[in-house]
Design a protein around this nucleic acid. Sequence first.
DNA 1: CGCATACTTGAGCGAAATCAAGGCCTGTGG
DNA 2: CCACAGGCCTTGATTTCGCTCAAGTATGCG
Lengths: 249, 249
Amino acid sequence: MLEQRDRAHRSPINLSEAIIPGLCAGCGARHIGLCDALADEDLHFLASVARQTTVARGHSFAIEGDSARYFFNINAGTARLHKDLPDGRRQITGFVGPGDFVGLAADDRYTFSAEAIEDVRLCRFDRTELRGVFSRFPAIERRLLDVASHELIVAQEQMLLLGRKSAIERLASFIDGWSRRAILCGGGTDSLRLPMTRTDLADYLGLTIETVSRALSALRKQGVIEVTPDHNISVVRPHALHDIARAGA
Amino acid sequence: MLEQRDRAHRSPINLSEAIIPGLCAGCGARHIGLCDALADEDLHFLASVARQTTVARGHSFAIEGDSARYFFNINAGTARLHKDLPDGRRQITGFVGPGDFVGLAADDRYTFSAEAIEDVRLCRFDRTELRGVFSRFPAIERRLLDVASHELIVAQEQMLLLGRKSAIERLASFIDGWSRRAILCGGGTDSLRLPMTRTDLADYLGLTIETVSRALSALRKQGVIEVTPDHNISVVRPHALHDIARAGA
DNA sequence: CGCATACTTGAGCGAAATCAAGGCCTGTGG
DNA sequence: CCACAGGCCTTGATTTCGCTCAAGTATGCG
Protein backbone atom coordinates (compact mmCIF):
# COMPACT_ATOMS: atom_id res chain seq x y z
CA MET A 1 0.00 0.00 0.00
CA LEU A 2 1.36 3.35 -1.04
CA GLU A 3 2.05 6.16 1.35
CA GLN A 4 0.51 9.56 0.65
CA ARG A 5 4.01 10.88 0.18
CA ASP A 6 4.89 8.29 -2.43
CA ARG A 7 1.81 9.02 -4.43
CA ALA A 8 2.58 12.70 -4.32
CA HIS A 9 6.00 11.92 -5.60
CA ARG A 10 4.69 9.98 -8.58
CA SER A 11 2.33 12.69 -9.76
CA PRO A 12 3.02 16.15 -11.17
CA ILE A 13 0.19 17.18 -8.88
CA ASN A 14 1.08 17.64 -5.26
CA LEU A 15 -1.36 15.34 -3.56
CA SER A 16 -0.27 16.35 -0.10
CA GLU A 17 -2.33 19.44 -0.81
CA ALA A 18 -5.94 18.95 -1.72
CA ILE A 19 -6.59 18.48 -5.43
CA ILE A 20 -10.23 17.99 -4.74
CA PRO A 21 -10.79 19.15 -1.21
CA GLY A 22 -13.96 18.48 0.65
CA LEU A 23 -16.51 20.83 2.00
CA CYS A 24 -15.63 21.79 5.54
CA ALA A 25 -18.91 22.72 7.19
CA GLY A 26 -19.05 26.36 8.17
CA CYS A 27 -15.92 27.42 6.35
CA GLY A 28 -16.64 26.28 2.83
CA ALA A 29 -14.37 24.18 0.69
CA ARG A 30 -11.01 23.69 2.34
CA HIS A 31 -8.22 21.37 3.23
CA ILE A 32 -9.91 18.00 3.22
CA GLY A 33 -8.41 15.60 0.70
CA LEU A 34 -10.56 13.19 -1.23
CA CYS A 35 -7.62 11.41 -2.72
CA ASP A 36 -6.77 8.73 -0.22
CA ALA A 37 -8.11 5.80 -2.19
CA LEU A 38 -6.71 6.51 -5.64
CA ALA A 39 -5.19 3.74 -7.71
CA ASP A 40 -2.14 4.38 -9.86
CA GLU A 41 -4.21 4.46 -13.03
CA ASP A 42 -6.43 7.13 -11.49
CA LEU A 43 -3.37 9.19 -10.71
CA HIS A 44 -2.17 8.93 -14.28
CA PHE A 45 -5.58 9.94 -15.51
CA LEU A 46 -5.66 12.98 -13.22
CA ALA A 47 -2.18 13.94 -14.34
CA SER A 48 -3.38 13.91 -17.95
CA VAL A 49 -6.23 16.35 -17.38
CA ALA A 50 -4.77 18.53 -14.61
CA ARG A 51 -1.60 20.53 -14.11
CA GLN A 52 -0.20 22.44 -11.21
CA THR A 53 0.90 26.01 -11.98
CA THR A 54 2.01 29.18 -10.26
CA VAL A 55 0.54 32.64 -10.79
CA ALA A 56 2.54 35.61 -9.61
CA ARG A 57 0.95 38.38 -7.56
CA GLY A 58 -0.83 40.87 -9.78
CA HIS A 59 -1.37 38.47 -12.66
CA SER A 60 -4.70 37.17 -13.92
CA PHE A 61 -5.39 33.50 -14.63
CA ALA A 62 -8.90 34.02 -16.00
CA ILE A 63 -10.29 37.02 -17.86
CA GLU A 64 -13.95 37.89 -18.30
CA GLY A 65 -15.03 37.16 -21.84
CA ASP A 66 -12.20 34.76 -22.64
CA SER A 67 -12.97 31.21 -23.68
CA ALA A 68 -13.35 29.25 -20.44
CA ARG A 69 -10.87 26.43 -21.08
CA TYR A 70 -9.89 25.78 -17.48
CA PHE A 71 -11.30 25.09 -14.10
CA PHE A 72 -9.08 25.81 -11.09
CA ASN A 73 -8.49 24.62 -7.57
CA ILE A 74 -6.39 26.95 -5.43
CA ASN A 75 -3.59 25.27 -3.47
CA ALA A 76 -1.88 28.29 -1.93
CA GLY A 77 -2.21 32.07 -1.91
CA THR A 78 -5.21 34.33 -2.37
CA ALA A 79 -6.94 35.60 -5.50
CA ARG A 80 -9.78 38.00 -6.18
CA LEU A 81 -12.66 37.36 -8.58
CA HIS A 82 -14.16 40.45 -10.14
CA LYS A 83 -16.48 41.84 -12.79
CA ASP A 84 -15.97 45.20 -14.45
CA LEU A 85 -18.11 47.81 -16.17
CA PRO A 86 -16.90 49.56 -19.33
CA ASP A 87 -16.24 52.81 -17.44
CA GLY A 88 -13.95 51.16 -14.91
CA ARG A 89 -16.30 50.49 -12.02
CA ARG A 90 -15.39 47.15 -10.47
CA GLN A 91 -17.18 44.65 -8.29
CA ILE A 92 -15.16 41.94 -6.54
CA THR A 93 -17.46 38.93 -6.18
CA GLY A 94 -15.19 37.00 -3.86
CA PHE A 95 -11.77 36.23 -2.49
CA VAL A 96 -10.56 32.65 -2.92
CA GLY A 97 -7.87 30.83 -1.00
CA PRO A 98 -6.43 27.34 -0.51
CA GLY A 99 -9.02 24.69 -1.27
CA ASP A 100 -11.40 26.95 -3.14
CA PHE A 101 -12.60 26.33 -6.67
CA VAL A 102 -12.61 28.88 -9.47
CA GLY A 103 -14.63 28.41 -12.62
CA LEU A 104 -17.79 26.77 -11.35
CA ALA A 105 -19.70 29.83 -12.45
CA ALA A 106 -18.66 29.60 -16.06
CA ASP A 107 -20.37 29.29 -19.37
CA ASP A 108 -18.45 28.83 -22.59
CA ARG A 109 -16.70 32.02 -21.60
CA TYR A 110 -15.62 33.28 -18.21
CA THR A 111 -18.12 35.68 -16.70
CA PHE A 112 -15.53 37.03 -14.25
CA SER A 113 -11.81 37.72 -14.04
CA ALA A 114 -9.49 36.09 -11.52
CA GLU A 115 -6.33 37.81 -10.35
CA ALA A 116 -3.72 36.74 -7.81
CA ILE A 117 -3.30 39.22 -4.92
CA GLU A 118 -0.51 37.06 -3.53
CA ASP A 119 1.58 34.49 -5.36
CA VAL A 120 -0.85 31.67 -6.04
CA ARG A 121 -0.24 27.98 -6.63
CA LEU A 122 -3.16 26.25 -8.26
CA CYS A 123 -4.27 23.09 -9.99
CA ARG A 124 -5.67 23.66 -13.48
CA PHE A 125 -8.22 21.27 -15.01
CA ASP A 126 -9.24 21.09 -18.63
CA ARG A 127 -12.96 21.84 -18.61
CA THR A 128 -13.57 19.68 -21.67
CA GLU A 129 -12.28 16.73 -19.63
CA LEU A 130 -14.48 17.43 -16.62
CA ARG A 131 -17.22 15.03 -17.73
CA GLY A 132 -14.58 12.32 -17.85
CA VAL A 133 -13.36 13.22 -14.38
CA PHE A 134 -16.92 13.07 -13.07
CA SER A 135 -17.69 9.66 -14.51
CA ARG A 136 -14.43 8.28 -13.12
CA PHE A 137 -14.88 9.95 -9.73
CA PRO A 138 -18.60 10.42 -9.05
CA ALA A 139 -17.73 11.70 -5.57
CA ILE A 140 -16.17 14.74 -7.17
CA GLU A 141 -19.33 15.69 -8.98
CA ARG A 142 -21.32 15.31 -5.79
CA ARG A 143 -18.77 17.41 -3.97
CA LEU A 144 -18.93 20.11 -6.59
CA LEU A 145 -22.69 20.30 -6.27
CA ASP A 146 -22.25 20.80 -2.52
CA VAL A 147 -19.62 23.45 -3.14
CA ALA A 148 -21.82 25.22 -5.67
CA SER A 149 -24.74 25.17 -3.22
CA HIS A 150 -22.57 26.65 -0.53
CA GLU A 151 -21.32 29.35 -2.90
CA LEU A 152 -24.91 30.22 -3.74
CA ILE A 153 -25.66 30.69 -0.05
CA VAL A 154 -22.64 32.97 0.30
CA ALA A 155 -23.58 34.89 -2.84
CA GLN A 156 -27.09 35.52 -1.53
CA GLU A 157 -25.72 36.69 1.79
CA GLN A 158 -23.51 39.10 -0.16
CA MET A 159 -26.56 40.40 -2.06
CA LEU A 160 -28.17 41.22 1.29
CA LEU A 161 -25.00 43.04 2.29
CA LEU A 162 -24.71 45.02 -0.96
CA GLY A 163 -28.39 45.80 -1.26
CA ARG A 164 -29.36 46.64 2.27
CA LYS A 165 -26.51 47.13 4.75
CA SER A 166 -24.81 50.37 5.83
CA ALA A 167 -21.09 50.92 5.42
CA ILE A 168 -20.28 49.94 9.01
CA GLU A 169 -22.48 46.86 8.81
CA ARG A 170 -20.72 45.83 5.59
CA LEU A 171 -17.30 46.15 7.16
CA ALA A 172 -18.41 44.33 10.31
CA SER A 173 -19.92 41.53 8.21
CA PHE A 174 -16.75 41.12 6.22
CA ILE A 175 -14.44 41.07 9.24
CA ASP A 176 -16.78 38.73 11.11
CA GLY A 177 -16.85 36.29 8.19
CA TRP A 178 -13.16 36.54 7.45
CA SER A 179 -12.18 35.95 11.07
CA ARG A 180 -14.47 32.92 11.33
CA ARG A 181 -12.85 31.53 8.21
CA ALA A 182 -9.41 32.16 9.70
CA ILE A 183 -10.31 30.52 13.00
CA LEU A 184 -11.83 27.45 11.34
CA CYS A 185 -9.08 27.02 8.80
CA GLY A 186 -5.87 27.75 10.60
CA GLY A 187 -6.24 28.95 14.11
CA GLY A 188 -4.55 32.08 15.49
CA THR A 189 -7.40 34.32 16.58
CA ASP A 190 -5.45 37.39 17.77
CA SER A 191 -4.29 39.10 14.58
CA LEU A 192 -6.24 38.78 11.37
CA ARG A 193 -4.18 39.00 8.22
CA LEU A 194 -5.90 40.85 5.37
CA PRO A 195 -4.06 40.05 2.14
CA MET A 196 -6.21 42.49 0.14
CA THR A 197 -5.83 46.26 -0.09
CA ARG A 198 -8.42 48.80 1.04
CA THR A 199 -9.29 49.30 -2.62
CA ASP A 200 -10.07 45.58 -2.92
CA LEU A 201 -12.18 45.77 0.20
CA ALA A 202 -14.07 48.74 -1.22
CA ASP A 203 -14.69 46.93 -4.51
CA TYR A 204 -15.88 43.87 -2.61
CA LEU A 205 -18.24 45.78 -0.30
CA GLY A 206 -19.63 48.21 -2.88
CA LEU A 207 -18.05 51.25 -1.19
CA THR A 208 -15.19 53.66 -1.83
CA ILE A 209 -11.77 53.35 -0.27
CA GLU A 210 -12.41 56.42 1.89
CA THR A 211 -15.64 55.00 3.28
CA VAL A 212 -13.90 51.71 4.09
CA SER A 213 -11.23 53.62 5.96
CA ARG A 214 -13.77 55.68 7.88
CA ALA A 215 -15.83 52.62 8.79
CA LEU A 216 -12.72 50.87 10.09
CA SER A 217 -11.92 53.95 12.19
CA ALA A 218 -15.46 53.95 13.53
CA LEU A 219 -15.23 50.28 14.56
CA ARG A 220 -11.87 51.02 16.14
CA LYS A 221 -13.25 54.00 18.08
CA GLN A 222 -16.08 51.80 19.32
CA GLY A 223 -13.48 49.40 20.69
CA VAL A 224 -14.75 46.53 18.54
CA ILE A 225 -11.55 46.00 16.58
CA GLU A 226 -7.96 47.19 16.63
CA VAL A 227 -6.05 48.14 13.50
CA THR A 228 -2.43 47.00 13.62
CA PRO A 229 0.37 49.25 12.28
CA ASP A 230 0.64 47.01 9.18
CA HIS A 231 -3.07 47.63 8.46
CA ASN A 232 -4.20 44.22 9.63
CA ILE A 233 -6.94 43.81 12.17
CA SER A 234 -7.53 42.16 15.48
CA VAL A 235 -11.04 41.56 16.72
CA VAL A 236 -11.43 42.79 20.28
CA ARG A 237 -15.14 42.17 20.82
CA PRO A 238 -16.28 39.42 18.44
CA HIS A 239 -19.82 39.37 19.78
CA ALA A 240 -20.29 43.11 19.34
CA LEU A 241 -18.84 42.81 15.84
CA HIS A 242 -21.33 40.09 14.99
CA ASP A 243 -24.22 42.16 16.35
CA ILE A 244 -23.27 45.09 14.12
CA ALA A 245 -22.90 42.76 11.13
CA ARG A 246 -26.39 41.33 11.62
CA ALA A 247 -27.89 44.77 12.35
CA GLY A 248 -28.65 42.89 15.52
CA ALA A 249 -31.07 43.09 18.41
CA MET B 1 -44.57 1.99 -25.30
CA LEU B 2 -46.37 4.47 -23.12
CA GLU B 3 -47.48 7.88 -24.27
CA GLN B 4 -46.38 10.92 -22.29
CA ARG B 5 -50.04 11.54 -21.48
CA ASP B 6 -50.53 8.01 -20.10
CA ARG B 7 -47.55 8.30 -17.86
CA ALA B 8 -48.80 11.60 -16.57
CA HIS B 9 -52.09 9.96 -15.82
CA ARG B 10 -50.47 7.19 -13.78
CA SER B 11 -48.48 9.50 -11.55
CA PRO B 12 -49.58 12.03 -8.95
CA ILE B 13 -46.96 14.22 -10.58
CA ASN B 14 -47.97 15.94 -13.77
CA LEU B 15 -45.27 14.83 -16.14
CA SER B 16 -46.53 16.97 -18.98
CA GLU B 17 -44.97 19.81 -17.03
CA ALA B 18 -41.30 19.65 -16.30
CA ILE B 19 -40.44 17.84 -13.10
CA ILE B 20 -36.79 18.10 -13.89
CA PRO B 21 -36.47 20.63 -16.67
CA GLY B 22 -33.30 21.11 -18.60
CA LEU B 23 -31.07 24.09 -18.85
CA CYS B 24 -32.15 26.22 -21.76
CA ALA B 25 -29.08 28.15 -22.83
CA GLY B 26 -29.46 31.88 -22.33
CA CYS B 27 -32.66 31.71 -20.35
CA GLY B 28 -31.72 29.41 -17.51
CA ALA B 29 -33.67 26.39 -16.39
CA ARG B 30 -36.98 26.16 -18.17
CA HIS B 31 -39.50 24.02 -19.96
CA ILE B 32 -37.40 21.13 -21.16
CA GLY B 33 -38.45 17.77 -19.75
CA LEU B 34 -35.94 15.09 -18.87
CA CYS B 35 -38.56 12.50 -18.30
CA ASP B 36 -39.14 10.89 -21.66
CA ALA B 37 -37.42 7.60 -20.98
CA LEU B 38 -38.81 6.71 -17.58
CA ALA B 39 -39.89 3.15 -16.79
CA ASP B 40 -42.91 2.49 -14.63
CA GLU B 41 -40.76 1.62 -11.63
CA ASP B 42 -38.98 4.96 -11.96
CA LEU B 43 -42.30 6.74 -11.94
CA HIS B 44 -43.35 4.94 -8.80
CA PHE B 45 -40.07 5.85 -7.19
CA LEU B 46 -40.47 9.52 -8.14
CA ALA B 47 -44.01 9.48 -6.80
CA SER B 48 -42.70 8.23 -3.46
CA VAL B 49 -40.22 11.08 -2.99
CA ALA B 50 -42.02 13.93 -4.76
CA ARG B 51 -45.44 15.53 -4.54
CA GLN B 52 -47.16 18.23 -6.49
CA THR B 53 -48.69 21.02 -4.40
CA THR B 54 -50.24 24.45 -4.76
CA VAL B 55 -49.21 27.56 -2.86
CA ALA B 56 -51.62 30.49 -2.82
CA ARG B 57 -50.47 34.00 -3.55
CA GLY B 58 -48.96 35.63 -0.48
CA HIS B 59 -48.04 32.38 1.22
CA SER B 60 -44.53 31.12 1.95
CA PHE B 61 -43.36 27.61 1.18
CA ALA B 62 -39.91 27.99 2.73
CA ILE B 63 -38.89 30.17 5.66
CA GLU B 64 -35.36 31.26 6.50
CA GLY B 65 -34.08 29.34 9.50
CA ASP B 66 -36.58 26.48 9.21
CA SER B 67 -35.33 22.95 8.78
CA ALA B 68 -34.77 22.49 5.04
CA ARG B 69 -36.84 19.38 4.45
CA TYR B 70 -37.83 20.07 0.85
CA PHE B 71 -36.44 20.95 -2.49
CA PHE B 72 -38.80 22.52 -5.02
CA ASN B 73 -39.32 22.74 -8.73
CA ILE B 74 -41.76 25.43 -9.85
CA ASN B 75 -44.36 24.32 -12.38
CA ALA B 76 -46.48 27.46 -12.65
CA GLY B 77 -46.67 30.94 -11.16
CA THR B 78 -43.96 33.21 -9.77
CA ALA B 79 -42.35 33.35 -6.34
CA ARG B 80 -39.84 35.62 -4.68
CA LEU B 81 -36.83 34.47 -2.65
CA HIS B 82 -35.70 36.85 0.04
CA LYS B 83 -33.52 37.36 3.08
CA ASP B 84 -34.41 39.69 5.93
CA LEU B 85 -32.59 41.64 8.59
CA PRO B 86 -33.93 41.81 12.16
CA ASP B 87 -35.06 45.43 11.70
CA GLY B 88 -37.18 44.66 8.66
CA ARG B 89 -34.85 45.50 5.81
CA ARG B 90 -35.37 42.97 3.04
CA GLN B 91 -33.33 41.79 0.08
CA ILE B 92 -34.99 39.78 -2.65
CA THR B 93 -32.34 37.48 -4.11
CA GLY B 94 -34.40 36.35 -7.06
CA PHE B 95 -37.72 35.73 -8.72
CA VAL B 96 -38.44 32.16 -9.77
CA GLY B 97 -40.92 30.92 -12.34
CA PRO B 98 -41.92 27.76 -14.21
CA GLY B 99 -38.97 25.39 -14.49
CA ASP B 100 -36.86 27.01 -11.80
CA PHE B 101 -35.50 25.19 -8.78
CA VAL B 102 -35.74 26.40 -5.19
CA GLY B 103 -33.61 24.99 -2.43
CA LEU B 104 -30.30 24.41 -4.16
CA ALA B 105 -28.77 27.01 -1.89
CA ALA B 106 -29.69 25.25 1.31
CA ASP B 107 -27.85 23.87 4.26
CA ASP B 108 -29.61 21.92 6.99
CA ARG B 109 -31.79 24.98 7.29
CA TYR B 110 -33.11 27.33 4.65
CA THR B 111 -30.98 30.44 4.28
CA PHE B 112 -33.80 32.30 2.50
CA SER B 113 -37.57 32.51 2.47
CA ALA B 114 -39.71 31.72 -0.55
CA GLU B 115 -43.10 33.35 -1.03
CA ALA B 116 -45.62 33.06 -3.85
CA ILE B 117 -46.43 36.38 -5.52
CA GLU B 118 -48.94 34.61 -7.74
CA ASP B 119 -50.64 31.29 -7.14
CA VAL B 120 -47.85 28.75 -7.57
CA ARG B 121 -47.95 25.09 -8.50
CA LEU B 122 -44.79 23.25 -7.61
CA CYS B 123 -43.25 19.84 -7.24
CA ARG B 124 -41.84 19.16 -3.79
CA PHE B 125 -38.97 16.72 -3.24
CA ASP B 126 -37.82 15.26 0.06
CA ARG B 127 -34.24 16.45 0.41
CA THR B 128 -33.26 13.35 2.39
CA GLU B 129 -34.21 11.31 -0.68
CA LEU B 130 -32.22 13.42 -3.11
CA ARG B 131 -29.16 11.17 -2.95
CA GLY B 132 -31.40 8.30 -3.98
CA VAL B 133 -32.84 10.33 -6.84
CA PHE B 134 -29.33 11.19 -8.01
CA SER B 135 -28.08 7.62 -8.02
CA ARG B 136 -31.17 6.48 -9.91
CA PHE B 137 -31.04 9.40 -12.37
CA PRO B 138 -27.44 10.58 -12.72
CA ALA B 139 -28.55 13.00 -15.43
CA ILE B 140 -30.45 14.93 -12.79
CA GLU B 141 -27.39 15.49 -10.67
CA ARG B 142 -25.46 16.66 -13.71
CA ARG B 143 -28.31 18.96 -14.63
CA LEU B 144 -28.43 20.40 -11.14
CA LEU B 145 -24.74 21.20 -11.27
CA ASP B 146 -25.33 23.08 -14.52
CA VAL B 147 -28.28 24.89 -12.98
CA ALA B 148 -26.26 25.79 -9.89
CA SER B 149 -23.42 27.11 -12.09
CA HIS B 150 -25.85 29.24 -14.02
CA GLU B 151 -27.37 30.58 -10.81
CA LEU B 152 -23.89 31.52 -9.60
CA ILE B 153 -23.33 33.51 -12.78
CA VAL B 154 -26.62 35.31 -12.28
CA ALA B 155 -25.84 35.94 -8.61
CA GLN B 156 -22.48 37.50 -9.46
CA GLU B 157 -24.09 39.71 -12.09
CA GLN B 158 -26.53 40.83 -9.39
CA MET B 159 -23.64 41.64 -7.06
CA LEU B 160 -22.23 43.93 -9.75
CA LEU B 161 -25.64 45.57 -10.03
CA LEU B 162 -26.10 46.03 -6.28
CA GLY B 163 -22.54 47.12 -5.58
CA ARG B 164 -21.79 49.41 -8.46
CA LYS B 165 -24.74 50.46 -10.62
CA SER B 166 -26.87 53.61 -10.37
CA ALA B 167 -30.63 53.46 -9.87
CA ILE B 168 -31.42 53.90 -13.57
CA GLU B 169 -28.81 51.31 -14.55
CA ARG B 170 -30.34 48.86 -12.06
CA LEU B 171 -33.83 49.33 -13.47
CA ALA B 172 -32.57 49.08 -17.04
CA SER B 173 -30.64 45.90 -16.20
CA PHE B 174 -33.68 44.32 -14.61
CA ILE B 175 -36.04 45.19 -17.47
CA ASP B 176 -33.47 44.10 -20.04
CA GLY B 177 -32.99 40.74 -18.35
CA TRP B 178 -36.66 40.19 -17.67
CA SER B 179 -37.66 40.97 -21.25
CA ARG B 180 -35.00 38.62 -22.63
CA ARG B 181 -36.33 35.91 -20.35
CA ALA B 182 -39.85 36.62 -21.58
CA ILE B 183 -38.84 36.56 -25.24
CA LEU B 184 -36.88 33.31 -24.88
CA CYS B 185 -39.48 31.53 -22.81
CA GLY B 186 -42.79 32.47 -24.28
CA GLY B 187 -42.69 35.04 -26.97
CA GLY B 188 -44.81 38.21 -27.04
CA THR B 189 -42.34 41.06 -27.10
CA ASP B 190 -44.71 44.05 -27.01
CA SER B 191 -45.98 44.16 -23.43
CA LEU B 192 -43.92 42.85 -20.56
CA ARG B 193 -45.91 41.52 -17.64
CA LEU B 194 -44.38 42.29 -14.25
CA PRO B 195 -46.01 40.04 -11.65
CA MET B 196 -44.13 41.73 -8.81
CA THR B 197 -45.00 45.02 -7.09
CA ARG B 198 -42.79 48.12 -7.05
CA THR B 199 -41.90 47.22 -3.47
CA ASP B 200 -40.62 43.82 -4.66
CA LEU B 201 -38.66 45.53 -7.39
CA ALA B 202 -37.13 47.90 -4.85
CA ASP B 203 -36.18 45.04 -2.53
CA TYR B 204 -34.65 43.19 -5.47
CA LEU B 205 -32.64 46.15 -6.75
CA GLY B 206 -31.50 47.50 -3.40
CA LEU B 207 -33.54 50.71 -3.77
CA THR B 208 -36.67 52.27 -2.31
CA ILE B 209 -40.06 52.15 -3.95
CA GLU B 210 -39.88 55.89 -4.70
CA THR B 211 -36.55 55.58 -6.44
CA VAL B 212 -37.86 52.70 -8.55
CA SER B 213 -40.81 54.82 -9.56
CA ARG B 214 -38.63 57.79 -10.43
CA ALA B 215 -36.20 55.65 -12.43
CA LEU B 216 -39.09 54.17 -14.40
CA SER B 217 -40.34 57.68 -15.12
CA ALA B 218 -36.87 58.70 -16.24
CA LEU B 219 -36.63 55.76 -18.65
CA ARG B 220 -40.11 56.62 -19.89
CA LYS B 221 -39.19 60.28 -20.45
CA GLN B 222 -36.12 59.15 -22.37
CA GLY B 223 -38.40 57.18 -24.66
CA VAL B 224 -36.72 53.89 -23.81
CA ILE B 225 -39.78 52.20 -22.32
CA GLU B 226 -43.49 52.82 -21.98
CA VAL B 227 -45.42 52.18 -18.79
CA THR B 228 -48.87 50.71 -19.45
CA PRO B 229 -51.89 51.82 -17.41
CA ASP B 230 -51.78 48.53 -15.47
CA HIS B 231 -48.16 49.29 -14.46
CA ASN B 232 -46.63 46.82 -16.85
CA ILE B 233 -43.92 47.82 -19.27
CA SER B 234 -43.19 47.74 -22.94
CA VAL B 235 -39.69 48.17 -24.23
CA VAL B 236 -39.57 50.77 -26.99
CA ARG B 237 -35.82 50.90 -27.62
CA PRO B 238 -34.26 47.60 -26.51
CA HIS B 239 -30.79 48.56 -27.66
CA ALA B 240 -30.80 51.84 -25.74
CA LEU B 241 -32.09 49.97 -22.70
CA HIS B 242 -29.25 47.50 -22.94
CA ASP B 243 -26.70 50.30 -23.28
CA ILE B 244 -27.96 51.94 -20.11
CA ALA B 245 -27.94 48.59 -18.31
CA ARG B 246 -24.30 47.93 -19.22
CA ALA B 247 -23.29 51.54 -18.49
CA GLY B 248 -22.25 51.18 -22.08
CA ALA B 249 -20.04 53.03 -24.51
C1' DC C 1 -69.64 55.25 -2.74
C1' DG C 2 -65.90 54.75 0.53
C1' DC C 3 -61.94 52.55 1.66
C1' DA C 4 -57.62 50.12 0.88
C1' DT C 5 -53.79 49.25 -1.88
C1' DA C 6 -50.41 50.48 -5.13
C1' DC C 7 -48.15 53.87 -7.56
C1' DT C 8 -46.29 58.65 -8.68
C1' DT C 9 -44.38 63.05 -7.66
C1' DG C 10 -42.33 66.78 -4.84
C1' DA C 11 -39.35 68.81 -0.99
C1' DG C 12 -35.76 68.35 2.15
C1' DC C 13 -32.30 65.52 4.29
C1' DG C 14 -28.46 62.46 5.01
C1' DA C 15 -25.02 58.71 4.16
C1' DA C 16 -21.69 57.87 1.21
C1' DA C 17 -19.15 59.69 -2.93
C1' DT C 18 -15.98 62.98 -4.53
C1' DC C 19 -12.39 66.22 -4.05
C1' DA C 20 -8.35 67.46 -1.54
C1' DA C 21 -4.55 67.29 1.72
C1' DG C 22 -1.44 65.02 4.62
C1' DG C 23 0.88 60.85 7.07
C1' DC C 24 3.40 56.53 7.00
C1' DC C 25 6.12 52.96 5.16
C1' DT C 26 9.28 50.93 1.61
C1' DG C 27 12.54 51.04 -1.71
C1' DT C 28 16.00 53.48 -4.45
C1' DG C 29 19.74 56.27 -5.35
C1' DG C 30 22.97 59.83 -4.01
C1' DC D 1 23.49 57.66 6.19
C1' DC D 2 19.81 60.73 4.36
C1' DA D 3 16.67 62.56 0.50
C1' DC D 4 13.09 61.65 -2.23
C1' DA D 5 9.44 59.20 -4.87
C1' DG D 6 5.51 56.33 -4.94
C1' DG D 7 2.27 53.32 -2.82
C1' DC D 8 -1.21 52.92 0.43
C1' DC D 9 -3.88 54.62 3.96
C1' DT D 10 -6.35 58.22 6.85
C1' DT D 11 -8.84 62.38 7.63
C1' DG D 12 -11.33 66.67 6.41
C1' DA D 13 -14.52 69.57 3.35
C1' DT D 14 -17.99 69.64 0.03
C1' DT D 15 -21.27 67.57 -3.18
C1' DT D 16 -24.64 64.35 -4.75
C1' DC D 17 -27.67 60.51 -5.32
C1' DG D 18 -30.92 58.13 -3.29
C1' DC D 19 -33.68 58.00 1.17
C1' DT D 20 -37.32 59.87 4.05
C1' DC D 21 -41.31 62.32 4.71
C1' DA D 22 -45.40 64.00 2.69
C1' DA D 23 -49.08 64.75 -0.53
C1' DG D 24 -51.77 63.40 -4.28
C1' DT D 25 -53.59 60.06 -8.07
C1' DA D 26 -55.41 55.76 -9.86
C1' DT D 27 -57.42 51.26 -9.48
C1' DG D 28 -59.97 47.61 -7.49
C1' DC D 29 -63.25 45.81 -4.20
C1' DG D 30 -66.81 45.35 -0.65
